[in-house]
Each structure stands twice: as structure tokens, then as C-alpha cells.
Design a protein around this nucleic acid. Structure first.
Length: 222
DNA sequence: CCAGACGTTGTT
DNA sequence: GTCTGG
DNA sequence: CCAGACGTTGTT
DNA sequence: GTCTGG
């Protein structure tokens, strides 16, 4: 699956790679759920920030659907009305159980290029709170109308021959030539497994607070 | 009819 | 919003 | 995904 | 053990 990833390609590289304008974004080697991260929406030629953890439009409180099974996204009420998006990444992490503990592994492209994970997105508007006092203040600066937010989930599928050594699910890494098809509502096309590699990394990545290039450096295997 | 759920992963 | 369970 | 918190009263 | 925060 995918519960943590890295996106450290600089904005100009992302702009070139996805042929869209990119806002000033900071690189991250440890992107975690609930953070606001760059996505390419299906309906806008630009990269925007969205909260990782999809909330269905009809939900009355924030949800944290960080993954969506590709096999059932057309059926599940939480996903079937969601729009599509690309989730740019340089790689993602998988944790493998070993010796009663867990070792993190990094999955990335052999050529080092960023890629797109298949994503679903929604625009979620928090329910408007009824304070009762706002009617007197005339909706002044004190009336807190929470703004709508973009949210997204990463689509998962069965692992290819590289990731199956680590896990029985994996994030959908789109074939570069078929990214537009995913955005158009068609089925995904996976990038060939031969283009990927995986290696163990430091357990420093476990702590969501850690964020440095060291996290994607290969560590000695156990 | 209304109330309540609506997901994934991994683990049991 | 839509479906399922009671 | 993993790490870290997990409480109350009263006071500042 | 379970929930929240990142």
C-alpha cells in the first residue's frame, strides 16, 4: 500500500515533468497522511495542494481515507463520485515485518525521475456551524466560515514483481504515457516493474517528524 | 419508514 | 448522497 | 504509514 | 489497546 512517500523534485522539474504550473512547494522526504501535498487535478492544468486523507463530499466530518482499492472504486460510496488526480512522488515507503520488528523499504524509479501515483480527489466543504451570534454581527470578520478543502487518496492494486517482495498491495504507479487516460476516467496502466527498484532505508523514516535526504539513502540490509 | 454506515491495511 | 439493516 | 498520547482542577 | 497527529 502507500502510507508514506517522498516528493523532493524541485518545482521547476515538476512543472516540466507534468507540463503544468507549480506553486512554491517545499520538498519532502517524509510525506504523511493529513499533510497538504501537491496533486494534479483532472480538471485544472496546474498543481495544487490537497490534504492526504480523502473525505467524501457528503461526509459531515473530516475523514482519513488515505488509500482506495482500484478494484472497487466504482462501487464504494466513498469513492465512486470522487474525481481523479495524479499524485506526484519520487518514491514511496513500505514497512516489512522482520525479527519481530519492522524495516522500512523505499520504492523508486531506476532513472530517479518523479512519477505519478493514481489518485482520487474530492472538494469537501465542512458543515456550516450555527453560532446564532453571527446574525447580529452581520457576518463580520468573526463569523468563521470554514473554507472548502481539497482532499485525496492514493489508489492501490496488486503488487508487481518488485513490490511483491515487500507487500501484498502497492500504490498504482502510472505509466507516464498513460497518465492522461487515468485522469479521463479510464483504467490505469502501470509503469513496467523493470523501471523500479527497492532498497532498505533507515528507520529514521518511521518518525513523521524526520525529514531529510538521508531518509531515501540506502541502508545496510539486516 | 428511519437510522446508520459509507475505507484500507493487516491481523485474528 | 445512497444503500443496507431493522 | 508510524509515533505518541492516553486526565483533571485550578491558575496564569 | 486505541485514538490522534504528522
Amino acid at each position: 500500500m502507500c502510507g508514506r512517500y517522498a516528493l523532493f523534485a524541485p518545482p521547476d522539474e515538476l512543472a516540466e515533468r507534468f507540463s503544468v504550473p507549480v506553486p512554491e512547494t517545499s520538498p519532502t522526504y517524509n510525506a504523511a497522511p493529513s499533510q497538504h501535498l501537491p496533486i494534479v487535478p483532472d480538471d485544472a492544468e496546474e498543481i495544487r495542494l490537497a490534504r492526504w486523507g480523502l473525505t467524501p463530499e457528503w461526509a459531515d466530518e473530516e475523514r482519513d481515507l488515505i488509500n482506495a482499492r482500484a478494484e472497487t472504486i466504482e462501487e464504494k460510496p466513498s469513492f465512486r463520485d470522487a474525481r481523479r488526480c495524479l499524485v506526484p512522488a519520487n518514491g514511496f515507503y513500505e514497512w516489512v515485518e522482520a525479527d519481530g520488528g519492522k524495516r522500512p523499504y523505499y520504492v523508486t524509479r531506476r532513472d530517479g525521475d518523479p512519477f505519478a501515483m493514481a489518485g482520487l480527489r474530492t472538494r469537501w466543504e465542512p458543515p456550516t456551524k450555527q453560532t446564532g451570534l453571527d446574525s447580529f454581527s452581520g457576518g463580520g470578520p468573526d463569523s468563521e466560515e470554514p473554507a472548502a478543502i481539497e482532499t485525496f487518496a492514493v489508489v492501490t492494486t496488486e503488487p508487481n514483481e518488485v513490490v511483491e517482495k515487500l507487500h501484498h498491495r502497492m500504490a498504482v504507479i502510472l505509466s507516464r504515457e498513460h497518465e492522461r487516460e487515468w485522469l479521463s476516467g479510464e483504467p490505469f496502466s502501470l509503469a513496467p516493474a523493470e523501471e523500479l527498484r527497492t532498497y532498505p532505508v533507515s528507520t529514521a523514516v518511521n518518525s513523521p517528524g524526520n525529514d531529510s535526504p538521508e531518509l531515501v539513502r540506502e541502508a545496510a540490509d539486516v
